[in-house]
Simulated assay, not measured.
Amino acid sequence: MKRILILLACSAIGTCLYAQKKPVATSGNPIFHGWYADPEGAVFENRFWVYPTYSAKYEEQVFMDAFSSKDLVKWEKHEHIIDTANFKWAKKAVWAPSIIKKDNKYYLLFGANDIQSDQETGGIGIGVSDKPEGPFKDYLGKPLVDKFYNGAQPIDQFVFKDKDGQYYLIYGGWGHCNIGRLKADFTGFIPFEDGKIFHEITPKGYVEGPYMFMRNGKYYFMWSEGGWTGPDYCVAYAIADSPMGPFKRIDKILQQDPKVATGAGHHSVIKHPQTNDYYIVYHRRPLGETNGNNRVTCIDRMEFDTQGLIKPVKITFEGVKANPIR
């Protein structure tokens, strides 16, 4: 009798609760609480992972947290996966992690100390762990890259595995980007045929934040442009037939929306392992924030046109729908 009365009441107002669909859950943006930037996305052990920089004053950037999710919507925090207490040479400015799994070990690369010359201690380090959530211990006892090559500050590292199994380190700030062939044990580099350890692959407009992925046999190279503290921070890309390039800038695909947020940049890409869905993970500055370190990590869909070009990304407050790994 009660159910009949409810249905009659619904019919009277023209909207029946029994006929309404449940709202689809979305991640929302930012996807987790706190000031975090430079996120690297990954998929390990049937979970999505995001490894960001803790966005604070350089002297306070002495650790990193990670976040994992089963569905891209609900995120679990893993605190202090890496800490300078375990790296005697690293003191501050721990930036822009890049992580890769190899031989059942997880290698997390990061920049530290914001060195300004070859005479300072710091650069790109490596932590190693048996688990994606760490804790990560110092793998080399020293930086992997601690000098300026081709004018590139040793920061903003990314590890790329090519189709032939070769691992590359792609990195660089100060408007220069280098690529080098990593040894199989990640202890150093294999020189190129000309004897050089690094080749410069800097495209027009490059500032920092390199990222590379493969799609349909092509190499998509992406990077950040503009100033990281300003509203003009953004992401552009190029496509080539080799990880060595040459990379000719195609277009800008991620940038601010004055109605949503400013300074959208320093990104990475997550491809769902079971579908053809691509997501761009990036940081941006909420409207009204003027502190350069007040950055949050967000996620939105990234799509391609029929020619394989990346469509401009629409940054949103909603984020993305749940898309679990089955």
Rank of each mutant, 00 (worst) to 15 (best):
N29H: 08
N29E: 09
P30I: 03
I31D: 07
I31N: 01
F32M: 02
F32L: 01
F32D: 00
H33R: 14
W35C: 08
W35M: 12
Y36M: 13
A37T: 03
A42L: 04
V43Y: 13
F44H: 12
F44E: 10
F44V: 06
F44L: 08
F44G: 14
N46Y: 07
R47W: 07
Y51F: 15
P52W: 02
P52E: 01
T53D: 02
S55A: 12
A56R: 06
A56C: 05
K57R: 14
Y58P: 11
E59A: 10
E60K: 06
Q61L: 13
Q61P: 05
F63A: 02
F63H: 03
A66W: 01
F67I: 04
S68G: 03
S68L: 08
S69N: 05
K70C: 13
K70L: 14
K70I: 11
K70G: 15
D71C: 14
D71Q: 12
D71A: 11
V73L: 13
V73S: 08
K77M: 03
K77D: 00
E79Y: 05
H80S: 14
H80R: 15
H80V: 13
H80I: 14
I81H: 09
I82F: 03
I82S: 07
D83G: 00
D83K: 09
T84R: 08
T84W: 00
A85T: 10
